[in-house]
Amino acid sequence: MTEWLERHVPKMVLAPSFVAVLIFVYGFIIWTGWVSLTRSKLMPKYEIKGFIQYDRLFASPRWDTAMDNLFIFGGLFIGISLILGLFLAILLDQKIRAEGALRTIYLYPMALSMIVTGTAWKWIMNPGLGIEATVRSWGFESFTFNWITDPNMAIYAVVIAAVWQASGFVMALFLAGLRSVDEEIIKAAQVDGIPTWRIYSAIIIPSMAPIFLSAFIVLAHLAIKSFDLVIALTGGGPGYATDLPATYMYAMAFSRGDIGQAASSAMVMMGVVFTIVVPYLYSELRAKHD
């Protein structure tokens, strides 16, 4: 008996967490998937009716806007954050005396809640008293910066705030990557007389492909889940101009009382995440099994 217990203690210790994950992650995904195939409205129903919720979803102009916004926002947010992060990392890699302080300054937004970020930028970008008013007070009377209230531009305002929050993190990733490049290779290149910019473009940056991938995955994941920032910055407005799938899902679930729509939109979000994350995780886990 004690023998048996001894052998199975590790499994028994792991079991509660595993069961919790099975139920609260996988079970819940199945539940949501199931409900997305029903006519659930205010209360969930469990009778499967096919893909009507998805038909409704894809026919909804609001969802259309949300998906468009996801691609605009996601593309710009990821792209700019990667470029800016890499750029800052390379600048900081030049033996700067104040490197520690600058790194701290670039990275601190990552410690903030997106609600705080949204609150700050909402104030800075409000046309009445923010940047627009300030620049006008300097004498540039025709200066306009009203993206946050302009339905066509509001999503770009969200991009600015999101890049501000996350680019420092990308910088930290790349800086760590730059520092881990084999010094001897760089010395060899310097001895060969290769100019600095060529060393970066031909040797260092290509060797950081895995970091690009990691940063991309993290940013993509942030983009798809991004909800807090939009709520705090624009509330999804003006109108539905800055709706994202995450805000759409929330609105359907908790203010519209349309559980079927909420479930189906959540499933689509998960589909998008998984097409990005699954290959990555798979390769990571494969690599470690050697």
Partner: peptide
């Protein structure tokens, strides 16, 4: 390892997918 992979996977789901059942 399978258990670990399944748990790791759970980190990456968009939480919207568990809001309703939770």
């Amino acid at each position: 390892n399978l258990i670990f992979s399944l748990m790791l996977f759970g980190c990456f789901i968009p939480f919207q997918v568990v809001l309703l059942p939770m």
